[in-house]
């Protein structure tokens, strides 16, 4: 009896101690709860209650071909952007590992600058560069590669060029972080043992870099799924992605029920991919 009370007392004091430890984080916790968790929760509820209680909103989103097209489109763009960023990022990361650090620092500075330049500004720049009278079409015509301007904007091409640009830093950094921890001696040993460069690449370098590659690809894919500004400005009317659908349904058509249901489909897909990744590979710390 006495022992039980004592145990309870130590448990209570332990809880009190933990409570006191947490106290300084309370303002930030309360803030995030009120400004972030609560509004998102209310939005979630609205997807089931407006205009009528039930799953009606979700039903129309997964049965109406207009909305299904948006979903397919979203996945298509995210996949295309992931592939194109990977093809660029792998050689860049490799370059950054082998060159003298002075050169690598300069390239890093460019990557960071691009990453921290306003999203809208970067998108606007591509809008101007890619338009019919823009610098890129002028250049192509000057080279004689084309006689009339190539439509590079207000279509899927524009969206993929712009999004690849924006996502590139997010995949170069994790691939570089993984590759820079590899020991060059490992590859030297393979070479001494008689392995050809091709074999070393496919059997050693690529597999060992895989954690960075997968982390970067997941990051780019998931971020691309939820992008709004870039597809809205560089894409055509038919290239709508799900984030645009959410924004337009709510801001333009005031259709809160359908809009919030679309938002939660997006959130669900995003979280599902993250959790699946964390389960499979473990938490990768962003660098």
């Amino acid at each position: 009896m006495v022992a039980a009370t004592e145990a309870r007392d130590t448990a209570t004091t332990e809880l009190a101690r933990q409570g006191r430890t947490l106290l300084p984080a309370l303002p930030a916790l309360v803030f995030l709860f009120l400004a972030f968790v609560l509004p998102v929760w209310v939005l979630f509820l609205r997807s089931f209650t407006e205009p009528a209680t039930g799953l009606g909103n979700y039903q129309s989103l997964v049965t109406d071909s207009v909305y299904l097209d948006v979903l397919v489109n979203t996945f298509f763009v995210a996949t295309a952007v992931t592939i194109s960023t990977l093809l660029l990022a792998f050689p860049i990361a490799w370059f950054l590992v082998i060159v003298p650090s002075r050169v690598a620092r300069m390239v890093f500075a460019v990557i960071l600058l691009s990453m921290w330049t306003n999203l809208l500004v970067r998108t606007y720049a591509w809008l101007v560069l890619l338009q019919d009278t823009g610098a890129i079409n002028q250049f192509l015509m000057y080279l004689g590669l084309t006689s009339a301007p190539v439509p590079l904007v207000n279509n899927m091409v524009g969206v993929i060029i712009g999004m690849t640009y924006i996502m590139l830093p997010f995949i170069v950094l994790p691939i570089h972080a993984t590759m820079s921890t590899l020991d060059p001696a490992l590859m030297q040993a393979a070479s001494i043992a008689g392995a050809k460069a091709r074999t070393i690449f496919f059997r050693i370098l690529l597999p060992l870099t895989l954690p960075g590659i997968s982390a970067g690809c997941i990051m780019v894919f998931v971020m691309s799924l939820g992008y709004y500004i870039t597809p809205a400005l560089l894409g055509g009317v038919r290239d709508m992605m799900i984030a645009q659908l959410v924004a337009e349904l709510i801001q333009k058509f005031l259709n809160w029920g359908l809009g919030s249901a679309a938002a939660f489909i997006l959130l669900f897909i995003t979280l599902a991919i993250y959790f699946a990744y964390v389960r499979l590979v473990g938490l990768v710390r962003p660098t």
């Binding site: 984080a25 209310v42 799924l225 984030a243 709510i250 919030s260 938002a263």
Partner: peptide, 23 residues
């Protein structure tokens, strides 16, 4: 708690935006 504090970085911004817009 760490994950909770990082969660605004994972949720697509457009969702936070429409949720706050409602509020």
């Amino acid at each position: 708690l760490n994950a909770f504090f990082a969660s605004p970085m994972i949720v697509p911004v457009v969702i936070i935006a429409v949720a706050l817009y409602g509020f």
